[in-house]
Design a binder for these strands. Sequence first.
DNA 1: TGCAACATGTAGCTCAGGCTACATCATCCG
DNA 2: CGGATGATGTAGCCTGAGCTACATGTTGCA
Lengths: 159, 159
Amino acid sequence: MSRPAQRAKTAARSGKTRPAEVQASALRQTRREHANETAEDYAEAIAELTAATGEARATDLARRLGVSHVTVIRTVARLQRNGLVTTRPYRSIFLTEKGTRLAEASRQRHELVVEMLRALGVPEAVAQSDAEGIEHHVSPETLATFQRFLHRQAGTPQK
Amino acid sequence: MSRPAQRAKTAARSGKTRPAEVQASALRQTRREHANETAEDYAEAIAELTAATGEARATDLARRLGVSHVTVIRTVARLQRNGLVTTRPYRSIFLTEKGTRLAEASRQRHELVVEMLRALGVPEAVAQSDAEGIEHHVSPETLATFQRFLHRQAGTPQK
DNA sequence: TGCAACATGTAGCTCAGGCTACATCATCCG
DNA sequence: CGGATGATGTAGCCTGAGCTACATGTTGCA
Ligand SMILES: [Mn+2]
Ligand SMILES: [Mn+2]
Ligand SMILES: [Mn+2]
Ligand SMILES: [Mn+2]
């Protein structure tokens, strides 16, 4: 239990351990993604509700997102501050231009992740559930890779 | 802008929109996974540091996790409350039995996710970064599917 | 041996995202 | 046409996770 102090830094680079900096920046990236996650899920849900029923109301969002209506109202207020939605007291919620773009991108990414999981053999229900978390951590490069993979699959006459 | 009230519920089930309940439970699952995420990443990092340098100190963890040492100290205190680590003031941090099991499971899952991404053609660096977020949202079923896929790949004499 | 340098700890703040309990608003329908 | 009912909003609470600034411990080495 002696104290190696900065000796440790030197010892660390002998193994096959990832460099601290590499891991740190991956974790920072993950935290950034989490910060956008709520906005992405709300935008997607608002777009779906609007398409399906003509409008998105706080109560419907609460049911669909699995949170209380209070949480929805507070979160929607933040999304409005950030320019993603507009809403007036006692009225429904609408996506702005920016919000619509976010919703569309999120929907596409969501679907692609689900398709990818299914293509690998993950059962439908599990794919739906896992995708809801995974989608927010798929970089554009990985997304492009998924797309290539799926196209190749589709084009290849599989036995 | 009339008010359909519960009329909406009926209208919703006409489209191909996911049922609200299904999406709600997927999102609840994702939130549960986020609640374990910090513990998993810390356990993994503590195990790595211990293996590489013989001990895990708060400062090293802070560097590796990309947060301040204060955050590490507070989080480690919580992990101790939850029985994952032991630590004494001004001393290094050790995993308990339970913590060791969590670290090992997390490590395996992390590696499998990276391998899966690489197998699909995602560049190494991107795979490392994306995996850091994705790993926490991969269910046991999906993990098993990944494993089968990778074994099949390895066993198949690819051209 | 003593102290400078580094590690660890504490105080106190911010923000996101949950919640319950209660208050107010809007509207459908009897 | 006036409630009852359901939707929306407010007050006030909690926890996790981050931070800076400052205080205190530890120890290697001059
Ligand atoms: Mn999601
Ligand atoms: Mn989604
Ligand atoms: Mn996540
Ligand atoms: Mn991770």
